[in-house]
Amino acid sequence: MTDAEVTVQLLVEEPSTKQALGVILPKIVPNVPFEIVQFQGKQDLLKRLPGLLKGYAVRLEWELLRIVVVIDRDLDDCAELKRKLVRIADDAGLPRSAVLFRIAIDELESWFLGDVPALCAAYPRVPANLGEQARYRDPDATGKALRALEHVLKSNGYHRDHLAKVKAAVGIGVHMDVEANRSRSFQVFRDGLRRLVSEGS
């Protein structure tokens, strides 16, 4: 089989994640069909996840599916949340080789801060040396990536009232270089998705 025969189903919590992944995914796994399903927040996703994964497990009998769940950690213990998700997948009869769980800790905004050239392409007044500044040297360690990104944009004259997350996600995402992103969390997502697609192909 070839990678093109694999279909990726992504389950996400919010519109900005859906819109960003819509433009980023084709750069990570070109020519792989995908569908992004957006829920009404974390609790809605968790409530519906057991039934959805059971459905995917049945479809695996005749479809080459790979499922990616992107969910916010919020105040949950990361390890416990991961165990909970794995239990749901196991109970649904879904092979672990067919599913990737990504627990996000302000992840999307960390990804944007990890690609300063893309950030500058979308927002030209953002300084090109942003990644050299101490606070932004490690995009995954800004403390609160959403607030950090909002600060960067507001201080340079963008999104002054509030951060328009969907607009920012698409605007930055279209310029992202998936091979050069400095965010470790992005690299883990990128490499995990590629393994998920290639191992079953």
Rank of each mutant, 00 (worst) to 15 (best):
D91P: 02
A92C: 12
G93N: 10
G93W: 08
G93F: 05
L94P: 04
S97K: 10
S97Y: 01
S97L: 02
A98T: 08
L100I: 10
F101A: 11
F101N: 08
F101E: 13
F101L: 10
R102W: 10
R102I: 14
R102Y: 13
R102T: 14
I103R: 03
I103H: 05
I103S: 06
A104K: 03
A104D: 11
I105A: 13
I105M: 07
I105W: 04
E107G: 11
E107P: 00
L108Q: 04
L108V: 03
L108A: 00
E109Q: 04
W111Q: 00
W111M: 02
W111P: 00
F112T: 01
L113C: 03
L113V: 01
L113D: 01
L113T: 00
G114C: 08
G114E: 05
D115N: 09
V116D: 04
P117Q: 15
P117K: 14
A118H: 12
A118G: 12
C120W: 05
A121F: 05
P124S: 09
P124L: 12
P124N: 07
V126D: 06
V126K: 06
A128S: 15
N129S: 14
N129C: 12
L130I: 05
L130N: 09
G131S: 12
G131C: 08
E132V: 11
Q133L: 14
Q133F: 03
Q133I: 09
A134Y: 10
A134F: 12
A134P: 04
R135P: 00
R135G: 01
Y136N: 05
Y136R: 04
Y136L: 09
R137Y: 06
R137T: 10
D138M: 03
D138H: 05
D138Y: 06
D138K: 12
D138F: 03
